[in-house]
Design a protein around this nucleic acid. Structure first.
Lengths: 243, 243
DNA sequence: CGTCAGGTTGATTAGGATCAACACAGGTGG
DNA sequence: CCACCTGTGTTGATCCTAATCAACCTGACG
């Protein structure tokens, strides 16, 4: 009876790992029952497109596991990544029927999806959801604006330091806020993907990592695993005020 | 100069010039009556701060007339402008009590304000408003992401061309969409403010304007007034796909 | 094994930043 | 009325950061 599609089919909202942070975070029990019936899971392999700019958006959804990027390409191949999508982040825009950005799975990704038309109805009828959507959209807007400062005004070194601190912050979510001491992180992106996110080339990213390593600001345990011996010192390299 | 300012006190929502595009656009008559009673106008002279990053946000509001910028400063004085606020644009973030950005009036500005706490209650109780807020936040998010491509990947020349086309588009709002022929525009920003918006220096902005002028892409009728003889040709310089 | 994706490092170039001088209009006060 | 100042803008000379071009390394995998 149960062939492929292992655990996913059995999942329900009450055991959902992103239940408390996703778009459904503020829904009450009745609303969750409705969403539970509407939802379906989709999986994407690392490297696969989830959505193409210009395509019709048939669904919206939340990242349950894995990492994806929001990006846009220019005709000549230049690429800018506008955001990382981590578990609990929302994909898609109710009220618009074609995607304006490419969304790409960079690790294996599982989404909790809703058909766009049904979800739009649900948003219109459920203040808990539209209010939560607003909250999340405003958070993303703040993040986008912070990134605009990075892209427009920060040096390569400051960009890398800021990026690393963002990873530290995201991987510390839930735990006590960490502003001092050491921290171990795993980079979710290749050098090239980091470059596209920060408006640099992959060579510049690589060089800045080497420089920070030689200076002892970071210790590399493999290409993707990094220890930051002194988080405060790295923070001081970001150029940001300590918000 | 502005003999219109006295009129502000008499304004009510039914004669409001931004009624159909602002946060209140989708409100019904009853809701407008409530907002009408809650609102108050505030004016700011050109150059004056409207809000400081870190300050307590006592109010939110809509731009009724004039232009303001959203920007952030680094300790060493580097500045990045994250957005222009034109009539009907919304200032402030319900659900947050300190501002995360500076907002500055760059021309004389009139705002239609609401006390933040009352507005938040209204948002919570009025789906028309929270839905409109969501729509506007998502539009701003799209605009911010488009600008991230400009900041991260475009050349100085492409940045200027993109900026000019944005002004063309905004000053054409309501009229038929113009993708060809000539167009006259007035720049709302100084060279320095444009530089801060595009992640350039004022010298580079000035040089690129001179270059476009020498090439005949633009004609300058004074420092701030520009004629674009061939809008399509300028669009071709933006590096963007024709979305 | 050979191939390929991901990464590092070196040499050179170029696009903008920086530093600097000057132009010009609009006040302002003597 | 003029001398002076200040904010805004232009242009030139030089410098520097990051892009570009290129070689090579490593590990995974068919």
């Amino acid at each position: 009876m149960d062939l492929q599609t292992p655990l996913i089919k059995d999942r329900n909202c009450s055991s959902c790992p992103i239940r408390h942070r996703a778009v459904c975070a503020t829904c009450d029990d009745d609303e969750i029952v409705t969403l539970d019936a509407m939802k379906y899971y989709r999986s994407f392999d690392a490297g696969q497109p989830i959505m193409w700019a210009g395509d019709r958006m048939a669904f919206v959804g939340s990242v349950v596991s894995g990492t994806a990027t929001i990006e846009r390409l220019m005709e000549d191949g230049r690429k800018q990544t506008m955001g990382l999508l981590l578990p609990s982040d929302f994909i898609g825009r109710p009220g618009r029927d074609t995607a304006t950005y490419d969304v790409t799975a960079i690790t294996d990704v599982t989404l909790c999806c809703f058909r766009r038309d049904s979800f739009e109805k649900m948003v219109a009828q459920t203040p808990h959801i539209s209010q939560r959507m607003l909250e999340m959209a405003l958070d993303e807007l703040d993040a986008a604006r912070d990134w605009m400062l990075l892209l427009g005004r920060k040096t390569a070194r400051e960009k890398i330091a800021t990026f690393l601190m963002m990873i530290v912050r995201r991987s510390t979510e839930g735990e006590a806020v960490l502003t001092t001491g050491s921290k171990q992180i795993t980079l979710p992106l290749t050098r090239e993907a980091m470059a596209d996110y920060m408006g640099l080339t992959l060579e510049t990213v690589s060089r800045q990592f080497s420089k920070l390593r030689k200076e002892g600001m970071i210790v590399m345990d493999g290409k993707r695993d990094i220890t930051i011996p002194d988080v405060e010192a790295l923070q001081a390299e970001t150029g940001s005020d300590l918000s």
